[in-house]
Simulated assay, not measured.
Amino acid sequence: MIARAPYLFLLLILVPDLYLDLHYWRHRFAQQRRLLYWLPTVIQLVLTVILTYETHFIPDNITLLYIYLLMMGLITAPKWAYMLCSAAGLALYKARHLHSKKTEKKRKNYGNLVGVAATMLIWYVVLYGAFVGFEKLEVNHQTYTSPDIPKAFDGYKIVLFSDAHVGTMSGNRQWLLQRAVDTMNAQHADMIVFTGDLQNIQPEELLEHKQLLSSLKAKDGVYSVLGNHDYDKYLHSGEEHHRVQRLPELIRLEKQMGWQLLQNEHRTISRGGQHITIAGMENDGDGNKFPQLGNIRKTLANTNGFIIMLEHEPASWRRTTVPDGRAQLTLSGHTHDMQFRLLGWSPMDMLNIEWNGWYTEGKQSLFVTAGLGGLIPFRFGATGEIVVLKLEKVKR
């Protein structure tokens, strides 16, 4: 992760300290105290160098990465906020011509006060998100109505979860996954579906949780698709031998857990002589940052009637599923609701993309879940969720 843009991280760490030292520390503190203020920055710079030489996108010692990111949130981000507020306050002061010699001693940079308030807010968000918000879980009840739903499936209950990232729920966090599994089983669903990103980077993460995940039960079974993290995209480019082995290993483990992994294929669920189709595409990303392996023609070959499509990336819905026109309902994940909302607002609101909740295009609908976990153990205002989706038949 850090190795992909080490110079960016170095600049993020250094720039605010250079500003603070130039404008405050060197004028107010003795040399020894100045060095003390620089100490956290030195530690961060050392960690950046160490993480730069990690061969994987996610280092084997993931705790080191969590410590590093926590320091970025508690130290670097507040310094940037303070620096920007202070610089803006200083610029505003000068723009109003309040820096004459006569008033020099009395001038106040009110941007500093705003910077202090911003620092306090950032500390709250980071600490709450890392130690409280990530441990919260919601059960999100939704209803999908359509005249195309067969009468025998009116009231059919589907439990949807996504983006488990079980490597983040290892050790003393496994209780989070246990709670999620217990909550899903308590719904007595007709079907459980998982829309990808079971692991962070490697199948070995599943071994600790294999028995627990195997205990998921639904009348018509558990169906899943692969997400971008389930492929080998985040392994070092030189590890071709491991690449060949690891994806088949993940597939083998999912099947051993009793899950029906759909790789550009579908299954038919029958009741009372009527049926619905549960289909699943492989990850259909941009082909650059995210694997583009989806094949909707293969996935929906020889299908008809009511179709539920599982697809990890919601961007694929408008690009692939809507033009095809056959799948009435698509379920996705991937976005995690950005794991951040402040007073109900998310930066994702500024993007014209499908990223959370319901979207409709003609007779086709997409639901994007906020997901269960995350690579980084942090959630603020975007609580992890399990979705309980009820199918309801309506008249045309």
Rank of each mutant, 00 (worst) to 15 (best):
W80A: 05
Y66K: 02
L70S: 14
L70P: 00
Y124N: 07
L92C: 12
Y68R: 05
Y110F: 15
H99L: 03
A87S: 10
F131P: 09
N61L: 10
K105C: 05
N109R: 06
T76D: 00
N112R: 03
A91D: 08
L84S: 06
H99N: 05
L65Y: 11
N61C: 01
K94Q: 01
L127P: 06
A117G: 11
H97G: 04
S86H: 14
K102C: 06
L64N: 00
V132T: 13
V139G: 02
A77M: 12
D60C: 00
Y68V: 00
A77K: 06
V114Y: 06
K108E: 02
T76F: 10
R107V: 11
T76C: 13
E135K: 15
L127E: 05
W80R: 00
S86F: 12
Y68F: 14
A77D: 02
L64K: 12
L69Q: 12
L70W: 08
L113A: 14
Q142G: 04
N61F: 07
A88P: 00
L69H: 13
T76K: 06
V126C: 10
Y82K: 11
D60I: 03
A118E: 09
Y110G: 04
Y110E: 12
A130Y: 10
L74I: 11
V116K: 04
Q142C: 02
